[in-house]
Design a protein around this nucleic acid. Structure first.
Length: 111
DNA sequence: GCGTTGACGAGGA
DNA sequence: GTCCTCGCCAACG
């Protein structure tokens, strides 16, 4: 894990997110060992569509469960569409029962 | 090497 | 609960 660059670590964690689950930028930042760099997680996501294999960036939201990154999808509605396909309810660009769908990446990293 | 950039988060009002 | 401000730090030009 530590041999990878910060971006690659972020991508690796995001790819571990199970279908139908979501997590936050902050949680990912903690998982890669830089909890203060939550902003960089989002910054890294900017490049997520270029990386191979592609990362499920639609399963990453901010701590409020708000789909702040949807503007970076094309079309923006795609993010909500993908999540709803996985059984997650989106309302007003926000995930309902967020804590219920929340997935803690740090627990998977430590295994 | 430096200033800017951000899909963020915590804390205070 | 919301809104505003500040801190954070790797990548980019």
């Amino acid at each position: 894990m530590k041999d990878l660059s910060f971006f690659e670590q972020v991508y690796a964690v995001v790819r571990l997110i199970p279908t139908g689950r979501v997590t936050t930028y902050g949680a990912i930042a903690v998982a890669v060992g830089a909890k203060k760099a939550a902003r960089m997680v989002g910054y890294a996501m900017n490049n997520s569509h270029v990386v191979e294999p592609q990362v499920p960036a639609h399963r990453v939201v901010n701590r409020k469960g708000l789909l702040t990154g949807r503007h970076h999808f094309s079309p923006p509605e795609l993010m909500e569409k993908l999540l709803s396909e996985e059984g997650i309810i989106i309302r007003n660009q926000q995930i309902q029962n967020f804590d219920k769908h929340f997935w803690e990446p740090i627990e998977e990293i430590r295994i």
